[in-house]
């Protein structure tokens, strides 16, 4: 299988990486970059555990090829905490017990970030819609929805400041 060099930004850092043409983004992140926060749950775009941000929008990294990142910006769960400070969504997930086994959590948080990027003041239904592509088997989603709603309020206050 052919390889090529791609240039892209990963968690804020410019990178040039040699990748296999047929390698999925999730495998590239996990096996080549050792960023294992992005999870493999179904590898067909159904469970959302591998969700990352591509130019600020949530995508499932198992249904994109690594080469597609060429010229784009990728953020994974490892890039969400900035300078040692947790993102408000991460903080609210901790405080509200919005996780149990934690396997869907990275993908869930990436979807939540994408949602709040586009819609900083979502209704409950819009939050549920925003994470409808992320399956969680543990929580019944109740506390996840609560955490995202609470984070949205906190982020709105920060913006107002």
């Amino acid at each position: 299988m052919a390889k090529r060099v791609i240039s892209f930004k990963l968690n804020g850092v410019d990178r040039d990486e040699l990748v296999l043409d047929n390698m999925t983004m999730v495998d590239f992140l996990r096996k080549q970059m050792h960023l294992t926060g992005t999870k493999r749950g179904c590898e067909e775009g159904e469970c959302g555990a591998c969700t990352i941000l591509l130019d600020g929008k949530a995508v499932t990294s198992c249904t994109m090829l690594a080469v597609e990142a060429d010229g784009h910006e990728i953020v994974t769960i490892e890039g969400v905490r900035k300078d040692g400070v947790l993102h408000p969504i991460q903080k609210e997930f901790i405080d509200k017990w919005a996780l149990q086994c934690g396997f869907c959590t990275p993908g869930m948080i990436m979807s939540a970030i994408s949602l709040l990027n586009e819609n900083p003041n979502p209704t409950e239904h819009e939050i549920r819609d925003g994470i409808a592509g992320n399956l969680c088997r543990c929580t019944g989603y109740v506390k996840i929805v609560e955490a995202i709603a609470s984070a949205a309020k906190i982020m709105a206050k920060e913006v107002a400041k």
């Binding site: 996990r30 050792h34 769960i77 490892e78 969400v80 947790l86 996780l99 934690g102």
Partner: peptide, 21 residues
């Protein structure tokens, strides 16, 4: 009180079986 593993789980550093390299 909060879970002792919560921070590892929200930052992607929690190690599951497939993450053991």
């Amino acid at each position: 009180y909060v879970r002792i593993d919560a921070e590892a789980k929200v930052t992607g550093t929690a190690v599951y079986t497939d993450d053991v390299y």
